[in-house]
Simulated scan of single mutants.
Amino acid sequence: MTIVIINTGCSNLNSIKYSIQRVGYQASITDSIHDIKIAHKIFLPGVGTAAAVINILKNKNLLSFIKNTTQPILGICLGMQLLGTYSDEGKKCILLNKIPYSIKKLPNNNCYIPHIGWNIVNITKNNFLFNNIDDNTRFYFLHSYYMKQNEYTIAISKHGISFCSAVAVENFFGVQFHPEKSGYSGEQLIKNFLEI
């Protein structure tokens, strides 16, 4: 099986690669459209601003391909937010529009922003992404923006407000948390995605 991690220029690429290795698979980090097109599974990580990652994908001629791919793809953190319509971060940034909801800043409801650290993930729909993972398991988060709960939500979390912490639509999956930093449960989720 060919597995690729799209090189979006963020700092956690090798962490994802090593997590994939720990569950028994090999992955490459690449921005080659040829390599991505022939992959069986695709990881779309993101750290930083939505506009910066969208610009990187545009400049590498990957944006249109990602929008239209039929391969299973897992967005991580900002990579999940990219599945929305647009982000309120900075100037409104148009995203992949796979899920018809915008990305908004977490409100400061008696909590620190950004949301950093371990938090409970409440599974709201059965999905193989959470096979062999208990409901209300803790995963590691680091984000300031969020997608509201919607019909594509498969898990939610709470930090001041409830927000979407995992989504699934067609061949697109997304998690707001960092599975590569979430120990055994995070690696189980990565394994589940690879074994779709």
Rank of each mutant, 00 (worst) to 15 (best):
I76C: 09
N68T: 14
L44H: 09
F65V: 00
E89K: 04
K158F: 05
V175N: 04
G48V: 11
E195Q: 03
T85V: 05
E180G: 02
Y101H: 09
T124H: 00
I103D: 01
Y184D: 15
N7L: 04
F128K: 15
T137P: 04
L106D: 13
N150S: 12
T85D: 05
A166N: 04
S162C: 13
I54V: 14
P45C: 11
H115E: 06
L62S: 01
K41D: 01
A50V: 01
Q71I: 15
N150T: 00
N122F: 08
G183A: 11
I5Y: 04
I38F: 08
K91C: 06
E195I: 00
T137H: 02
C164A: 01
I56D: 04
E151M: 07
L83A: 05
L129K: 08
E89L: 03
M147E: 12
N7W: 08
Y152P: 08
D135L: 06
I120F: 11
K105W: 13
F172P: 14
I33H: 01
N132V: 01
G9Q: 12
E180H: 03
T30D: 04
V175A: 02
T69N: 07
E151Y: 11
I36R: 05
G160K: 02
I133P: 02
F65Q: 03
G84F: 10
K104M: 14
I5L: 06
Y145E: 12
T30R: 03
I73K: 08
I154G: 12
F172I: 06
V47A: 11
R22L: 07
E151C: 01
I154T: 10
G183Y: 11
I99C: 12
A168M: 00
I103N: 05
V4D: 00
T153R: 05
N192Y: 01
I73C: 06
S185I: 00
I190T: 12
A168K: 08
N14F: 15
N150F: 02
E180D: 14
N7S: 10
N61P: 03
V175S: 04
N59A: 11
I54E: 06
L96Y: 14
A52N: 15
T124G: 03
D31I: 04
M147D: 01
I123K: 07
M80A: 02
I54C: 11
I38Q: 08
N127M: 03
E187A: 09
I54W: 08
D31A: 07
T85Y: 06
H115M: 06
G160W: 05
A39F: 01
I161L: 13
G160A: 06
I99G: 10
D134F: 08
D31K: 14
I5C: 00
V169N: 14
C93E: 15
G24V: 06
N192F: 09
Y146F: 15
E180I: 05
N136S: 15
M147H: 07
F65D: 08
F139C: 04
N122S: 14
G46S: 09
Q21N: 13
